[in-house]
Nucleic acid binder design. Structure first.
Lengths: 260, 260
DNA sequence: GTCGACCAAGTGGTCTGACCATTCTCGAGT
DNA sequence: ACTCGAGAATGGTCAGACCACTTGGTCGAC
């Protein structure tokens, strides 16, 4: 073992136990928290950032991947303004992937996710009653019309159902609520489709859902937030109960707060 | 949005326009979604996975970083059972980082976050009324006792406040609601501390908060879900209104903002 | 002068091969 | 039977090279 006499001092100074990619991560995040990096700004080129922070380019890339997974940056090849790594703000995709994986890992129980979904959609629909504009209402009608197709298959019905609930969330004007609603919906898409495929009495269920949606839309159109809030909770809860007959939806099933 | 986001025509054909690290990502995620990879399982060693998927080890590492950012895996050096990359399920940290960064980027307006927080904590406290055990109640009392210290400073008071709300969320028994509540709370920690520092009439405010917390705890202890739900909404809303006197904090304040 | 083809530069994307640091395993020596 | 050290396995890091893509300019043909 000829311990070749390389200088190789390894300069452990600034990295207080931090891994190399964490140094880069800290650099970027501190600038974002401080407001020095805003949406639309560009990060330095990877080679330059590596030199500046005294880490390898691979470490920079690992940090960029982390930020990308959080929906904070976007990378594009090429020279000029379009190329490079830019700060963005697209948390919806990141949230969706995160929730979906953790639902699949059974870390989040589907019933718990449903409860959170109800809480979030009650907020969304209340806000939608206040804020929905004509174009938002049109979007909801479009989704409802798709579901009214008598020939529609289960998968397309579910997609249109998602589109309706998403349109409501968008109409609310609360980005966090909307993104979270979308992420929740996508995260349980697999289990939901499984349940729909196996459910007995699909024809009855689909008619119930159509009626629910019509009532939901009517409440929003007449800006009746209390009714809409109550309707959306009952809608989600009863649909899920029918889809999972073995699991009698927990929590406040007893209370029938029929406020109108 | 071009449809060919990652061209790669010249390589060994298997990757259908996918970047190398995406191949690894897809390999892992599909196995998780299929239930073949569960919490506690180990990924193959990086070198082996790279050979198996015909990508470089660097590509494998970038994918692992992505999964790590989502709280899906954990890496440890060393040989034997403890070393290697294991599937975990720690979404709280990932959720927190994600929310905090996007709040800092002004992608999620603080007022919107507060609304989502109210919706989530109403759910949590309702569940806590049903599920809280003696140890959970003790944890809440502990946080309240810390806040009762007449000498307490603002920062420590805020931390204890967070601990109380977190204890409630934990007592609910809904992991998603608890993790999301914690992430929300952490994401607005900075703005909150700023507001607390600048607020006029801190002595009055802190007494109001203490009284709120006592009422909150009493409602949980007597399992009065309806009262608790109402109290927690009023508590959060009134506190935030006092901290941001300029913003009347109605249901929604999410207006389109043109940044730069 | 105008337009198109081409080339140079700069960017992220990928690969190779090496070495380092940490941790476990197991066998030699006591 | 016990202890300790060498080796192996693993993630962490690095340097350097090349590829693919995009932009922006230059230069020639018309």
């Amino acid at each position: 073992m000829t311990k070749s006499d390389g200088p190789r001092v390894t300069d452990p100074a600034h990295r207080d136990g931090m891994r190399a990619f964490e140094v880069v991560l800290a650099w970027v995040e501190s600038r974002i928290l401080a407001g020095e990096l805003c949406v639309g700004d560009q990060l330095p080129p990877e080679r330059e950032l590596a030199k500046q922070l005294e880490v390898s380019r691979a470490a920079v890339r690992e940090a960029v991947r982390t930020l990308q997974a959080q929906g904070v940056v976007r990378s594009a090849v090429g020279a000029g303004g379009t190329g490079g790594t830019t700060v963005t703000a697209v948390p919806a995709h990141a949230l969706t992937r995160l929730l979906r994986l953790h639902v699949a890992l059974a870390n989040f129980a589907v019933d718990d996710v449903i409860e959170a979904r109800i809480a979030m959609e009650r907020l969304s629909i209340r806000l939608a009653c206040r804020n929905a504009r004509a174009s938002d209402l049109a979007e909801m009608r479009r989704a409802i019309a798709v579901m009214d197709d008598p020939e529609i298959d289960k998968s397309r019905f579910n997609d249109a159902d998602t589109a309706l609930h998403l349109a409501i969330a968008e109409a609310a004007g609360n980005r966090l609520a909307a993104d979270f609603t979308g992420a929740i919906r996508e995260s349980i898409r697999g289990p939901l489709l499984d349940a729909i495929r196996d459910v007995a009495g699909w024809e009855d269920l689909i008619e119930t859902l159509r009626a629910d949606h019509r009532r939901l839309y009517a409440a929003i159109e007449r800006r009746d937030a209390d009714a809409a809030e109550s309707l959306v909770e009952d809608h989600i809860r009863s649909a899920w109960r029918q889809l999972r007959p073995g699991v009698p939806a927990p929590m406040v099933a007893s209370e029938v707060r029929a406020r109108r």
